[in-house]
Design a protein around this nucleic acid. Structure first.
Length: 729
DNA sequence: GAGTTTGAAACT
DNA sequence: CAGTTTCAAACTC
């Protein structure tokens, strides 16, 4: 059987094609008759760093009756993972608790005819990072009647593709899907027996590197039956589980992966692998795949991970479309040249299940609040690796959940989502200028096409009910898993760090929050917990909002881009893109956008009487005072904390005395520690008075007042101790 | 908290 | 593009 076609190998980058690390222990690559042959083709030309699709191998643990998830692109008709009703996805998770662990992968021998192709050898051992997940596609459990042992996996011939996966250093799966064209010559056709259906598949292991490049793995060739049947000792040891990964792209499809069970056993407890035993029967509902990009049907049960397929050259506006989990499905869409990534939410049904039906978003609507935990939060975005616009390696957090939202990586710290909405052709040509955090959301009554522009933060604002409703419509509702996922640390950021980005609520009264006066709107965010009046910056007023965005962009194409950018050569790294125009504030108040951004004014500023420059004595004084104030606050806080701690500690230690002695006067609590803490407070007060150049008399007064406060606290604690004692004793 | 000041955004 | 108005945040009392 041929497994790797020359044209396939030509696509693979060196990192992928180097298979030295998997030199067949049993089957030398050059022995076609005894092992799967690996093609020795030239190093791949795939621009891995810019167009490597990413996949989150998130096939959740599933029951045998659950559907398997298929991920497809709108234009790929044969890329579905689960088009076969008997197909199953076997998930294998390979990981190391210590991070990167060498993974030995060997090419498994296929019982099918071997093609005279060999894979290039790896130049370095493949390592497999923790929590790595690989997925095997289209593996079905063949009945024993086929002459194979029960549980033997049968890989369907059609749709077999190679998927190269890797993990970033953060553990995010990165996957490269290869064109499906290679697979056809690789399948063994029509032998008539069990082997005829036991198509070989390519075993691809993934490695990780310390940089952000997607790491690619080793290739091996094996038949599913051999893999699962453990026909060799090596297979028995290493191929205990299989994984299924979907890759979808306009031109790419799937792959088959296998990993060592030993590695699996080392999975970090915090992120247990989702796997099912090989051979376990999993019924797979055929996935309906539409040629329309907007109608990709994806089983909501499984959350296969997000994938980014390498789009073909000359693709139209949307370069990549990433099918997501759940119904309505969410597809990531990458707009060429755009810093943003979008997600299209595709509902399985039209009309009634559009998010807007359950996602009223007004700043004053309390119903919004419960939604936050379930929605993808900006953390997801921030966890993304900053990338070069539109063409970069994207990292997607594996989301063990069936969420309607999707983490999208952008070059900035905001995520962009797109949901189905009213067609807005007038907006689409300007997608690259959409405000940060744009989300396309369904417009009321709109079909599944079109987009509503929503801020990324709205993802955290959408009412959970909206998604529950959507999920429920197809019988799948996974708020729990979503919430669970939301708590997962993302790129070092805990959910608590990112679920609700602190932002001042706006107070707009006349602008309807649809002009740049509104900070929320200007930041591409929906109003949430604001104090605005007649707010239109929400999903309920999608059309108005879109018009407003368009109007802003018409006036200023970069209206939604950050104002603080990199300065010219020789200037500060950060500067205001337009410069300020202050006249009265001296650029030393927050009226000044430069000062507010904590940067100095630059040559492009048109301010009058500017004092916000490097050598400005006023600025230095201001900075000094600000720093001093900050330090002072910290010291005072520390001193008070210490005082309270000392008093509490003293109370604990003296309570028996109080009890036995019938009560002590407050001064009995003034121990050495309390006295020291009190002195700290007084000194801080003195320093404060000195820093603010207070007259001596006033300084003394302030100190005395502080002393009085200390005494009151001591007395208060003493009284409380007595009260507590009298109650408890 | 109310009123004032300020400068960006919007408008003409 | 310049001048004016509108607006909401920053600031003061």
């Amino acid at each position: 059987m041929d497994v790797v076609s020359p044209d396939l190998n030509s696509i693979l980058p060196d990192e992928i094609m180097d298979t030295e690390a998997i030199a067949m222990e049993e089957d030398p690559p050059n022995e076609p008759s005894s092992s799967s042959t690996l093609s020795e083709t030239e190093p791949a030309q795939v621009p891995m760093e810019t167009e490597v699709p990413e996949i989150v191998g998130l096939c959740p643990a599933t029951t045998p009756t659950q559907k398997t998830q298929a991920l497809t692109t709108s234009t790929t008709t044969d890329s579905t993972l689960c088009s076969n009703s008997s197909g199953t996805q076997l998930l294998v998770t390979s990981s190391s608790s210590s991070g990167l662990k060498p993974l030995t992968t060997s090419t498994t021998q296929s019982s099918s005819p071997v093609v005279g192709q060999t894979l290039p050898k790896l130049s370095a051992p493949i390592t497999l990072p923790a929590n790595h997940q690989l997925i095997l596609n289209k593996v079905a459990v063949s009945p024993a009647a086929d002459g194979k042992p029960p549980g033997t996996a049968v890989l369907k011939q059609e749709g077999q593709k190679l998927l190269v996966t890797g993990l970033s250093k953060t553990g995010q799966p990165l996957v490269l899907a290869l064109p499906h064209t290679w697979s056809k010559p690789a399948t063994s056709q029509g032998t008539g027996d069990g082997k005829a259906q036991t198509t070989q598949f390519k075993v691809v292991t993934a490695g990780a590197r310390t940089d952000l490049k997607p790491v690619i793995g080793v290739q091996a060739v094996s038949s599913a039956s051999q893999l699962l049947g453990s026909s060799t000792p090596l297979q028995a040891q290493q191929l205990k589980t299989l994984i299924c990964v979907g890759v979808f792209g306009l031109k790419y499809s799937f792959f088959f992966l296998s990993l060592s069970g030993r590695v699996l056993s080392q999975t970090t407890p915090s992120t247990p692998p989702r796997s099912i035993a090989v051979g376990e029967s999993v019924s797979t509902v055929p996935q309906s795949i539409s040629s329309s990009s907007s109608k990709v049907a994806i089983s909501p049960l499984k959350s296969p991970s997000k994938t980014v397929a390498v789009g073909g050259v000359g693709q139209p506006q949307f370069k990549t479309i990433i099918p997501l989990a759940t119904q309505p499905n969410v597809q990531q869409i990458q707009v060429p040249g755009s810093r943003f990534h979008y997600v299209r939410l595709v509902t399985a049904t039209t009309g009634g299940n559009t998010p807007q039906t359950a996602s009223p978003s007004t700043n004053t609507n309390p119903a919004i609040q419960p939604a936050k935990p379930m929605m993808m939060n900006t953390a997801a975005v921030r966890m993304s690796v900053p990338i070069v616009p539109a063409q970069t390696v994207k990292q997607v957090v594996p989301k063990p959940m069936t969420s309607a939202t999707q983490v999208v990586t952008t070059s900035q710290t905001q995520q962009r989502l797109i949901m189905p909405a009213t067609p807005l052709p007038q907006i689409q040509p300007n997608l690259t200028n959409l405000p940060p955090g744009t989300v396309l959301a369904p417009a009321p009554g709109a079909g599944s096409m079109g987009y509503a522009v929503l801020p990324a933060q709205y993802v955290t604002q959408l009412p959970q009910s909206a998604f529950v409703t959507l999920a429920s419509s197809s019988g799948f509702s996974t708020p729990t898993s979503i919430q669970t996922q939301a708590r997962l640390p993302l790129n070092g950021l805990s959910a608590s760090d990112t679920t609700s980005r602190p932002r001042k609520p706006c107070n707009c009264t006349k602008s309807q929050c649809l002009k740049l006066y509104c900070d929320c709107f200007a930041n591409g965010e929906f109003c949430n917990n604001c104090n605005c009046v007649n707010c239109f910056n929400n999903l309920d007023h999608e059309s108005e909002r879109l018009k407003a965005i368009k109007a802003c962009l018409d006036r200023n194409p970069v209206a939604f881009k950050p104002k603080i950018g990199k300065g010219k050569e020789g200037e500060s790294d950060r500067r205001h893109s337009k410069g300020c125009n202050c006249k009265k504030s001296g650029c030393l108040k927050n009226y000044c956008e430069c000062y507010e951004a904590k940067i100095m004014c630059s040559s492009i500023c048109k301010c009058v009487g500017c004092k916000n420059f490097e050598e400005s004595p006023e600025r230095k004084t201001l900075m000094h005072l600000a720093d001093a104030a900050e330090v002072r606050v910290q010291q005072q806080t520390a001193a008070k904390t210490k005082l309270s701690s000392q008093i509490s500690d003293l109370l604990t230690r003296t309570t028996p005395a109080i009890t036995s002695g019938g009560g002590k006067l407050p001064y009995t609590f003034v121990t050495k520690e309390v006295a020291e803490a009190t002195c700290d407070c007084l000194l801080e007060q003195a320093e404060k008075a000195e820093l603010t150049n207070q007259p001596q008399a006033l300084a003394e007064r302030l100190i005395l007042e502080e002393f009085g406060r200390c005494l009151r606290r001591i007395i208060s604690f003493a009284s409380k101790a007595k009260t507590d004692c009298s109650i408890n004793c």
